[in-house]
Design a protein around this nucleic acid. Structure first.
Lengths: 254, 254
DNA sequence: ACCTGAACACCGTTCAAGT
DNA sequence: ACCTGAACACCGTTCAAGT
């Protein structure tokens, strides 16, 4: 077992802590996102987390963009998709999307970070296999090959978009928003404004006029109903997706 | 016409350039995004664009977050939705979504910027009216009031997600990606790797093994087809949405 | 081979003066 | 009232040494 000389070249520890590697710093960056917002992830804060100087990170990644690319690859490589069965395909697709949503939520901000830094995701071989499997699934459901690809992309985009645009606000409420507001439905900023306190809304110049909200009849009725949970909202999105695909499959089946 | 003394209080020009206002600096920030990436939008670069010192901006906005909030509000206020007609509702919804996509694309990165800075969008009164109108439209199509709200949110999320996750890569190709690759379908990173040049793929440590891509049968067949344009991809997403909503409306109509 | 510490050019933001 | 210029604490990144 010690016949491979290359295996002994690098020590596994240094100064009491494990030796850094390209993977371990990427892993640290990914884990950092579980507890901090994307903006807090800096070379310096990550180095402090690892107990090294900022300069040390540059021995393993080229720059911050490269670091985030590694983190994105690790993020994709740890995605374990559930089985897809083309019989009872509706429930199968729903379960797949619920699992994918949980995956994205487990490292919130990774997608947003990739967007701001112009990092192309879906490069990891594991992700390629998943995409291929998903396309095969949609073909088995009855879509043409091009439609199966489009459906695959639409599915991933729906889940990623839901997590980044909807879940993140609930999972990590911004500091300036009252947490109690987030439990409400519709969100308070979708409610018609109380005409009492129309003053003091920040903009003090009257040049553009008060710009009254006017009637918002449907939102007003919504305010009296029970709030939607994010899970309910997500279930609705899945319904639209599933039935939309079913209609498409029925059409190309003719 | 000069009877209002308040109208004369602020000069309209100073040192040959128009006086700054809260709106004008927000407008400048929004326009900045048309020509530059979100990361380039800094207090200093924007001040240089306006011909003032960075400190001058702080007389009109509290900080960078506040500046981006103003820009987001302006972005929403300039959205002019097309008419929605509940008769021929499918084509009407499609046209609405196409216009909304064009709106988001006209200021690329605004949504991503709002995400990274934790800025809650849809605060502008004009946006409230639009949401209310869209909910009314979906009710007229045959959805229940809660479903109409969910469909409204799903519609906006679909368009915003498509622009940020799909269009931006085409409209603003990242510097490190070959532009020719973007015209291909599927993207090159979705193609099975050529076994010839499996060497030199960046990661030089063999500790994790070569991790072969293996068979990607559906992606391989896709590689021989004509690439999808973003418009084609978007049209497919709209088909899924429209037919999904139609199925939902038919079900609640019973 | 891998690390530290100092340094550079940036960034957001604030302070002390100018007019 | 609104601006400038200098300054502060950050950031990514690099250089020159250390071991």
């Amino acid at each position: 077992m010690s016949s491979n000389p290359a295996a002994r070249r690098r020590p596994t520890h240094r100064k009491g802590r494990p030796t850094l590697t390209r993977e371990s710093v990427g892993r640290a960056a990914l884990d950092f996102l579980d507890h901090h917002g994307p903006a807090e992830l800096t070379m310096r804060s990550l180095a402090a987390d690892l107990g090294v100087s900022p300069r040390a990170l540059y021995n393993y990644v080229e720059d911050r963009r490269d670091l985030l690319t590694v983190a994105a690859e690790l993020f994709e490589s740890e995605w374990r998709p559930p089985e897809l069965e083309s019989g009872r395909w509706r429930e199968s697709l729903r379960a797949y999307c619920r699992a994918l949503r949980a995956h994205y939520r487990s490292h919130p901000g990774m997608t947003t970070l990739a967007l701001t830094e112009n990092i192309t995701m879906a490069r990891h071989p594991a992700m390629l296999r998943n995409v291929d499997t998903l396309i095969g699934f949609f073909e088995a459901v009855g879509l043409s090959l091009p439609d199966a690809y489009r459906a695959c992309m639409e599915t991933i985009r729906l889940v990623a978009g839901f997590v980044e645009l909807q879940d993140i606000v609930y999972d990590r409420p911004p500091a300036h928003v009252d947490p109690a507001d987030l439990a409400q439905f519709p969100p308070p900023w979708l409610r018609p404004k109380d005409p009492e306190n129309s003053e003091g809304s920040g903009s003090s110049n009257a040049s553009e006029g008060p710009e009254p909200v006017g009637d918002l009849p449907h939102l007003a009725r919504l305010g009296e109903l029970e709030p939607d949970s994010p899970d309910t909202l997500f279930a609705f999105s899945l319904d639209i997706l599933v039935e939309g695909i079913a209609a498409r499959a029925a059409r190309s089946g003719e």
